[in-house]
């Protein structure tokens, strides 16, 4: 008896549904890798949702410290948002360039993405440093704790993304557009776009909702 031994047709449709689409077998590696990473991203989003929930619970606990409207600067947030949005776009351009194996546009797209990410981080870092200098650090109140953690967690993700981006560029430089490098590039693009989605949540919930009244 070999492994390919066919089983009688009676077993193919035991519940008489009529239409049985045969599963075609294991998916190719590109799909498997990207799907695994997609599942990871969803788990990452669940982690962010905890920090969002904590922020929602603690937002009114200012303990005599400043409220959101007193410390947020909408202009900075707008610049940060535009930076991330444009970087999402350039990241998309870089992944198209990788798919058509065009090194020049790949490097250019990634470099611009990196610069935009660094500008974002610089603005955020300045905002944090400024707040701490004014005595409004995360230890000041539960509200500031939640604010620093949520925004800082996103910032840490962006920093990790920049590190990953540079590693990707180095890898393309060293190894060219190999299949595994392309798979990693796809995962990186997913990661970067997902960070942008989380930032939409951050600027809407933290800066705009909390900065208004």
């Amino acid at each position: 008896m070999s492994m390919t031994a066919a089983v009688g047709d009676a077993h193919a449709d035991p519940h008489h549904i009529g239409l049985v689409v045969e599963h075609p077998g294991p998916a190719p590696k590109r799909i498997v890798t990207a799907y695994g990473f997609w599942v990871f991203l969803l788990s990452d989003i669940v982690m962010f949702s905890c920090f969002f929930a904590a922020y929602a619970v603690l937002v009114s606990q200012t303990a005599g410290g400043p409220k959101g409207s007193e410390i947020f600067e909408q202009r900075n947030v707008a610049i940060e948002t535009v930076c991330l949005l444009l970087s999402s776009f350039t990241c998309g351009m870089a992944s198209i360039a990788a798919d058509v194996r065009n090194r020049f546009w790949f490097y250019l797209g990634m470099a611009v993405t990196c610069v935009l990410g660094l500008i974002f981080l610089a603005i955020e870092f300045r905002e944090f440093a400024d707040l701490v200098a004014r005595g409004y650090g995360p230890s000041r109140s539960a509200f500031l704790t939640a604010f620093f953690s949520l925004v800082g967690c996103h910032g840490l993700h962006v920093s990790a993304g920049v590190l990953w981006l540079l590693t990707m560029m180095a890898q393309v430089f060293a190894k060219g557009f190999r299949a595994d490098v392309l798979r990693r590039m796809m995962c990186f693009a997913l990661f970067w776009h997902a960070l942008d989605i989380i930032w939409v949540g951050v600027f809407s919930v933290v800066y705009l909702l909390g900065g208004g009244s």
Binding site: V20, V21, E22, H23, P24, G25, P26, A27, I31, V32, Y35
Partner: peptide, 8 residues
């Protein structure tokens, strides 16, 4: 993603 052929 990795079921064998026919493993619906």
């Amino acid at each position: 993603k990795l079921r064998t052929r026919g493993m619906n």
